[in-house]
């Protein structure tokens, strides 16, 4: 995963979950971040979609269970646009 994409997602997540950016790792998930609930899950996805101008399909959301998953899905979408 490329650093800029991860870092941008990391900043979005940190801002949303109100935790230090450094505490957000690739394996960070709802289980490790107490404020990450279903509403914040949606807010995270919407914020990422807006930041990167992409739209995740419901089936793609299925693979998103951690910050690393979001970055992976995002990179696949961005690559398909090239």
């Amino acid at each position: 995963m490329t650093l800029p994409t991860f870092e941008r997602v990391q900043c979005i997540a940190a801002d949303l979950f109100q935790v230090p950016a450094g505490s957000i790792a690739a394996n960070s998930s709802p289980e490790s971040i107490p404020t990450w609930d279903s509403v914040q899950q949606l807010n995270l996805i919407l914020a990422v979609e807006q930041e990167f101008e992409v739209q995740f399909e419901p089936e793609e959301l299925d693979h998103i269970r951690s910050i690393g998953d979001i970055v992976e899905q995002l990179q696949a979408k961005l690559a398909s646009r090239l």
């Binding site: 998930s29 709802p30 289980e31 990450w36 609930d37 279903s38 899950q41 949606l42 996805i45 959301l61 299925d62 998103i64 269970r65």
Partner: peptide, 8 residues
Amino acid sequence: KRYTNVGV
């Protein structure tokens, strides 16, 4: 919380 995504 493993299924947080399901609602969305």
